[in-house]
Every structure is written in C-alpha cells, then in structure tokens.
Amino acid sequence: MVSTVEDTGVKSGTAIPVEIGKPRGGPEGRRTLRQDRWWLSPAVTVTVLTSFIAYATFAAFQGRYYYVGAQQHRNLISPFYSPCIANSCQRVAGSHPLGIWASFWNFSPALLILIVPLGFRLTCYYYRKAYYRSFWQSPPACGVADGHKSYTGETRFPLILQNIHRYFLYLALLFNVVLTMDAVLAFNFPGQGIGFSVGTLVLCVNAALLWIYTVSCHACRHLCGGQLNKFSKHPIRYRFWKAITPLNARHMQLAWVSLIFVALTDLYVRLVASGIIHDYKIF
C-alpha cells in the first residue's frame, strides 16, 4: 500500500526534512468514498463556462450587430466591442469619445478588446479555482483524487503568470470606466434627446455588475488595505478594505452573475442591432 513517489522534477526550494513514502491507511485505489453528488458542481461549471466561451467566440467573430446607432435613434454598444478602437469601428466612432486608434487592427475589434476581460477572469482567483477543479480536475472536488499524476501548482511557467492578476485588475478598472461611459451615452437617443430604454437599463446594470465584481477582487482588496498590518494607522484605507470585504466574500456569486449578464447584454444589443427585437423605450 506504499504510495508511490512520483518524480515531478520539482526543484524549487530545498526539501523540508519530512519522511515520505510511508504506508497510508484507508482503502486502496478508490478515487473517493464520498457518496454525495460531488461531481455536480464541476459539471455545472464546465457547462456554463463552455457555453459562455462558445457564445463569446461566436459573438466576437461575427464582427457585426454590436452597435445600435442613430438610424434606430439609439446609442447602444455591446460590451464585447467596447471600447471600439479598431479599424472596423467607423460606424461607432462618431458617437464615441475614445475614437479609433488601433487602426492597424483589421479583424473583429472584439478579438482585440476581449483580451482584457478574458485575462482578468482567467487570472481571477475564483475562476482559477473553478477551472482547476472542473476542467483540470485538480482536484475535481474535495476528497476526490486529483486527475493527474504529478502536480506543481502555480510554481512554474506558465501558471506562475497568474501572479500578474493585479495588472489585469488595473486594466479591467479602465474598461469599467469605458463601459460606464457607454451606459451614460445610452441615455442619449439621437434625434430624440435624453431618454431611457430597456437597452439603457441593460447597459447600466451590466456596468454596475462589472464594477461590483471588479471591486470585490482579491487583488483589489489587498491593494486597498489588505496589505497593511496596522489598520489603525490608515483609517481611510481600512474603511475601503472593510467595505470591500463583504463583497469579496461573495466574489464567486458576483463572478457568475456579471459573466452571464455580460453575455446577455451582448445578446440584447445583438438582437436589437440585427432587427430581431425592438428596444422598448420606457420614457
């Protein structure tokens, strides 16, 4: 029953003087003794994430129907395509303050833009947990054997790059500013003045959810105050930290809600832009 000691080639650091390779207890060769539906949660994660990726890929490659403009007396842009900075954004440009500066990019602008939110979520501590468990099966659930023979965690390339998460946070914050601007601009109904439609609401909610999700980020919590050891000496940063902490505790929920809502926002804009539905104006 001696557990075999595999060669993982770990070389980082010096070994700690513990004895390894001694026999363990419990039944051999069983993946788990859990009797509950432990596989449910990773299965749901895989399903939802895969659907999102499939939809996002479709939406990103489509390269059209991402903007509802003056012809429809609207100013709604899909979050996948904002800030619309690439060559093909001419139609949006007139009404968008950021203009086109990535004019070298001739493919769908979304492919360029999505790098930031994708990188942010890919390196997010919560999503890491979610995909390590579900896609990578490492481990699939607590007390269920790891799906891999060897394991080095985030100690080596490429996973050591997860440590740059905070830089994606900085970028994501900028993006949130842009998306907030989009939401504000959605109050402008070209030719009709100021108003409020379902589309405006969708963009507002989307921006709000992204803000909350971003602010609840672990790196954000750390940078705002978590890195301090004496809160009492920094009352303002402590207050930030304290406000973020309960949000941070719901980071997982916020990650899912904001993710799904971004997709729904894009879908809404796409449906309106392609003329399938009409954006109902509330006032």
């Binding site: 075999t4 993982t8 980082s12 390894i20 390779g21 490492s138 054997a145 790891d146 394991y151 965690g153």
Partner: peptide, 28 residues
Amino acid sequence: VCHVIRDHEVNKLYYAGPRFFVRLASLD
C-alpha cells in the same frame, strides 16, 4: 484534504500546507 499532498506524496518535501499558511498569515 489538500490535494497538493493528499494526491502527491512527494510534495510533502516542499509544501507546508494550509494550516501553516494560516500560521504564516497570522504572523504576517
């Protein structure tokens, strides 16, 4: 429960485990 050492015996040579991360955090 930590799979790092539960499923990979060799990592015991390089890994203190969550209990001691808790301790490190409490000191830090």
